[in-house]
C-alpha cells in the first residue's frame, strides 16, 4: 500500500495520525475491521465514535493490496473529515459504524490465544491483526460452539449482491450485474453510495462492515447520488449472497483447516473417483499437521466426512467442518487414493 505517496500529506494534516503496529491492548469493541488486511486505515473521533475505515482485500499475499489505492484512501479521508466537521450533529447516524462487542474486548484476553501471547516480549509476541480472528473463532470452537456464517464468510463484498465498486473510490459503483439484487434495487453504474441503512459510507470497507453485521435477509436502504440527484433504493438481500464470499486466501483460515489445503477436482479426477459432483483433492498437506498424523496424503481425493458428501469448493468444505461438527468429534473420512477407496479417522482439531 503506497500510503504515503501521491500526496495524502495535506489531508493527513487535518487528522491526528497514529501508526498502530500490533493489536495488544486494542479495544476490539471499537476497532472492528477485517483483521486479515495487511493494512487498514481507521478514522474516529476522540470520543471513540467511528467515522469509517479504509482497506479491503480479496486475495492472497501477492495481491493483498489490489483493492487499495492512494486515490481511494484520499476519498475516504475526505469523507471522514466531512463527517468530523458535521459532528456531533450527525452522531446518531454513526452509531452502526460500531459493531457488537466480541466476548472479550482485548485480544490478549481471548482464551484461545491468551497463553500464546501472555508474555510481553515484543516483537516476538506481537499480536498481529489476523490473530484476532483466531482469538475469536478458536475460542468459540474450543468451547464446542458452531461458528455462525458471519464468522466464516467474513466481510462480504457488495459484489455478492451484484454491486461492484471502483478502486479509486470505493463508494462509487463501477458495474451492476444484470438481474442481481442490486440491479433489481435500481442501482446504476456511476452511482455514488452515500449511506447504507442510514449510515454514511466513506469506503468499500464501510459497505463491507455493514454487510458483515446485517441479517441475511435484510432490506438494505441504499442512498445514492446520481447526476446531482439523491435516490433512495432498497436492496432486498436474499438467498446465499453471503456464502459467495471466498475466504480461503485468509491467513486466519489456517485455523479452520485440519492440516491441509484442498482444490477442486478436474472432470477426469471426478470420474476416476466415481463422483458425479463435489469432492476435493488435498494440496498441499501441511507438515506436522493433525491430518498428516492421521495418515492423509497429498493428492488424496476426499469423498465424504461423517457421512456428508464433500462439496466442490474448499470454502464449502471448511464451512461444513466448522458448522456440522465440533472440536474433538471423531470424524470418519472416505477418500480415494491411487485408484482405491479407503477410510481414515481423526479427531476434529
Amino acid at each position: 500500500m503506497a500510503r504515503l505517496e501521491g500526496g495524502i500529506g495535506d489531508l493527513a494534516k487535518d487528522f491526528v495520525c497514529v501508526r498502530v503496529i500490533q493489536m495488544r491492548g486494542i479495544d476490539t469493541s471499537v476497532f472492528q475491521f477485517d483483521y486479515d488486511l495487511t493494512w487498514c486505515g481507521f478514522f474516529l473521533n476522540a470520543d471513540l465514535t467511528v467515522y469509517g475505515r479504509y482497506g479491503s482485500r480479496n486475495a492472497g499475499r501477492d495481491k493483498s493490496d489490489q483493492l487499495m489505492s492512494v486515490d481511494g484512501l484520499k476519498a475516504a479521508l475526505t469523507k471522514a473529515l466531512a463527517l468530523h466537521k458535521n459532528y456531533p450533529a450527525n452522531k446518531a447516524t454513526l452509531k452502526a459504524k460500531t459493531g457488537k462487542p466480541y466476548a472479550q474486548k482485548l485480544p490478549e484476553t481471548m482464551p484461545a490465544i491468551a497463553d500464546q501471547f501472555k508474555q510481553d516480549d515484543l516483537p516476538k509476541k506481537c499480536i498481529h491483526c489476523h490473530h484476532v480472528w483466531r482469538g475469536i473463532r478458536r475460542t468459540m470452537m474450543n468451547a464446542k460452539q458452531v461458528l455462525p456464517d458471519t464468522l466464516i464468510y467474513l466481510y462480504p463484498f457488495p459484489d455478492s449482491f451484484g454491486m461492484q465498486m471502483e478502486t479509486a473510490d470505493g463508494t462509487k459503483v463501477r458495474q451492476v450485474v444484470k438481474d442481481s439484487i442490486a440491479d433489481k434495487a435500481g442501482v446504476k453504474a456511476g452511482d455514488e453510495v452515500e449511506a447504507v441503512s442510514g449510515t454514511p459510507i466513506v469506503s468499500l470497507a464501510d459497505i463491507q462492515f455493514i454487510l458483515q453485521n446485517c441479517a441475511d435477509n435484510e432490506n438494505l436502504k441504499v442512498e445514492v447520488a446520481r447526476g446531482g440527484e439523491k435516490k433512495s433504493l432498497t436492496a432486498n438481500l436474499c438467498g446465499d449472497w453471503r456464502k459467495s464470499t471466498d475466504f480461503t486466501w485468509r491467513d486466519s483460515c489456517y485455523d479452520l483447516r485440519i492440516g491441509f489445503q484442498s482444490e477442486a477436482l478436474t472432470a477426469d479426477e471426478r470420474k476416476q473417483a466415481g463422483l458425479k459432483d463435489g469432492g476435493l483433492k488435498i494440496k498441499p498437506m501441511y507438515a506436522q499437521s493433525p491430518a498428516k498424523k492421521a495418515g492423509f496424503q497429498d493428492g488424496d481425493i476426499l469423498l465424504s466426512v461423517g457421512g456428508q458428501p464433500i462439496p466442490a469448493t474448499e470454502r464449502e468444505f471448511l464451512a461444513l467442518l466448522r458448522q456440522k461438527f465440533l472440536v474433538g468429534q471423531k470424524l470418519k473420512f472416505a477418500l480415494h487414493r491411487g485408484g482405491k477407496k479407503t477410510d481414515l479417522t481423526m479427531d476434529l482439531p
Binding site: 500510503r3 493527513a12 487535518d14 487528522f15 491526528v16 495520525c17 497514529v18 501508526r19 498502530v20 503496529i21 493489536m23 491492548g25 486494542i26 476497532f31 475491521f33 488486511l37 495487511t38 493494512w39 487498514c40 486505515g41 481507521f42 478514522f43 474516529l44 473521533n45 476522540a46 471513540l48 467515522y51 479521508l77 471522514a80 473529515l81 463527517l83 468530523h84 491483526c129
Partner: peptide, 20 residues
C-alpha cells in the same frame, strides 16, 4: 493510541489510525 486520543481531544481533530 492513548496519546492520539489525547491530542485529538485537545486539537479537536479526528484520528487517522493506520494498522499494519
Amino acid at each position: 493510541l492513548p496519546a492520539a486520543l489525547a491530542r485529538a481531544r485537545k486539537e479537536n481533530k479526528p484520528i487517522f489510525a493506520a494498522f499494519r
